[in-house]
């Protein structure tokens, strides 16, 4: 994927995404059509009790950056308000995704917040881990830790994970890498104690 992408998901208890797709003439992918037989999930083999459609706007307008697209489509969504209502959309999710190497830089004005709220739209952010992330992290570990102390570091991480089971190992590694790649790896005992504090903070986020 690109460094960051933006999608819009339309949902509704009696939503017909195929009709909205025709009306707006947009490549909305039908994930579930209200009343049609579901092919997977809880309602497999039964009529879907909801409709869901996905509009991948980053694929439509590849030249524009994430901020431009966000502003533009928030305005468009507000303009589609009556059509969305007519075809049964009762929830809109603007999904902004970035890869783990690139932070998202986006601003949301008061007007946009007001408009999004009026059409029951919300914004979700998430990070996609690339296939190479774990391998890269392992490489970073090799570069940024003292080899003789590596066993001790791993033990500390595993101990922290046991204390905080809601964060899995894959989630913890980036924090771990961040800490040790930005700090001098001398005075390892001191660093380990600091990592414990850092890890507790990470769990709170």
């Amino acid at each position: 994927m690109k460094n960051s992408v933006i999608d819009i998901r339309f949902e509704g208890s009696k939503f017909y995404p195929s009709k909205l797709k025709r009306k707006l003439n947009l490549p909305i992918e039908v994930l579930a059509e209200y009343g049609e037989i579901s092919t997977s999930g809880r309602y497999k083999g039964q009529p879907s009790p909801y409709g869901m459609g996905l509009l991948e706007i980053s694929l439509l307008e590849k030249q524009k950056n994430i901020n431009e697209l966000f502003q533009e489509y928030c305005i468009k969504l507000f303009g589609w308000k009556e059509d969305l209502k007519e075809f049964g959309v009762d929830e809109i999710i603007i999904d902004i995704a970035n890869t783990s190497e690139f932070p998202v830089d986006i601003s949301i004005s008061n007007d946009i917040i007001h408009n999004l709220s009026s059409i029951n739209a919300r914004v979700e952010f998430h990070t996609i881990h690339t296939e190479d992330d774990l391998e890269d992290n392992n490489e970073s570990l090799k570069k940024n830790t003292l080899p003789l102390k590596k066993d001790k570091l791993y033990k500390k991480v595993l101990s922290s994970l046991k204390k905080h089971p809601s964060i899995n190992k894959a989630d913890a590694i980036p924090y771990f890498i961040y800490y040790y790649s930005t700090k001098n790896a001398e005075n390892i005992d001191e660093k380990l104690n600091k990592f414990e504090d850092f890890y507790k903070e990470a769990v709170k986020v």
Binding site: R9, E11, E29, L31, S40, M52, I93, D95, I128
Partner: peptide, 15 residues
């Protein structure tokens, strides 16, 4: 992971 996030997890949540 991207497809899972975009197309499958939303269905699980909606179900």
């Amino acid at each position: 992971e991207e497809i899972f996030h975009k197309k499958i997890k939303p269905k699980i949540k909606k179900d």
